[in-house]
Simulated assay, not measured.
Amino acid sequence: MSRRYRPFDPFEREPFDGPREIRFPRPPRRVWLGGLLFLIAIVIFIFASPIVSVITELQWYDALGLKDVYTTRLFLQVALFVGSFAISFIYLAANVVLALRVRSGPGLRAVGIRRAIVRSAAGGLALSAAALVALILSGGAGTQWQALALFQHSSPTGMVDPVLGQDVSFYLLALPFLHSVVGWALGLTFMGALLITALYAWRGDSFVLNFSPLAIAHISASLAFFATAFAALLWLGRFDLLYSHNQLVVWGAAYSDVNARLPVLTFEAGAGVVTAGAMIANIWIRRLWLPVGA
């Protein structure tokens, strides 16, 4: 005997009844366990090869009696990676949280209405992007362990260049590490400014370049950091003239480098500092044309 169902009546519900609640079934525990095991397998697949390589290299250097050399290198690599990741993520995450608070609207918070800013879709996506950028930057920083080791053990030689008055050890031991630090800072500040600008412009399904005064102040502060890092890069470029292959015949700074390129680089570095000062002033002025013009 077949089961009988009531005939469908489209007028059975009241006209002003709300929409029916749709409930999705809760995944069973074995689904979460399977996802966790899959995540563990991915982590093992990613880190298995580096771990095996570290263990092999450690045993090899230990057999040669040079274990301290390898452990020192390993310590510098880990310190650069962890330190770079921590600083990068803290800087980017702080900017993301501040941008999310500005986006949520101070007017609503003034009347007691609060929104979940970090746990929102924009917050999760922005923090994930911040973690990814920090991971990429820290991966590059970990390869600069040799520059850090040279910088730590630099000592003056007593030989000073006649143009800029720096010791020779500065060019050989300190300048490579300073270039690495400034390049890392330049990438961090650029990605930070780009991330918060995109976060302020994002409207869910489109990007609108209509920023509030608080957003302009925040973007100006991030651009001030970027301009400072760029000015530092230009300032270090002055020292590169003295030992780079600038001419077809000779190495080092020629007449045109000392009398033309060196003043230009100095002027550009000063212009970068002035731009950073203008961005700092725009934190209070809050005019969109100033960061756009810069």
Rank of each mutant, 00 (worst) to 15 (best):
R3I: 06
F8V: 06
D17K: 13
P19H: 11
R20M: 06
F24W: 10
P28I: 09
R29H: 00
W32D: 07
L33H: 11
L33A: 10
L33D: 03
L36V: 00
L36W: 13
F38I: 12
L39A: 15
I44P: 09
V52M: 12
T56V: 11
D62T: 12
K67M: 08
D68Y: 12
V69K: 04
V69N: 11
T71I: 05
R73S: 09
Q77F: 05
A79E: 13
L80R: 02
G83W: 08
G83S: 15
F85A: 08
I87P: 01
Y91E: 08
A93H: 02
L98I: 01
A99N: 04
A99E: 03
G105L: 13
P106H: 01
A110V: 02
G124H: 11
A126I: 09
A126P: 06
A130L: 10
L132P: 09
V133T: 02
I136G: 00
G142A: 10
T143L: 08
T143R: 12
Q144S: 11
W145L: 03
P156E: 10
M159P: 09
A174L: 07
L178V: 04
G183F: 01
G183V: 07
A185Q: 08
L186A: 05
L186D: 05
L188W: 04
T189M: 01
T189G: 08
M191H: 02
M191R: 02
G192E: 14
L199N: 00
Y200F: 11
A201D: 10
R203G: 03
R203I: 06
V208E: 09
L214R: 11
A217I: 09
A217R: 08
S220K: 03
S222H: 05
A227S: 15
T228Y: 07
A229D: 07
L233C: 07
D240H: 12
L242R: 02
N246A: 09
W251K: 12
A254S: 06
S256D: 13
R261M: 13
L262F: 12
T266W: 04
G270S: 06
G277M: 10
I280E: 01
A281I: 03
R286Y: 12
R286S: 04
R287D: 15
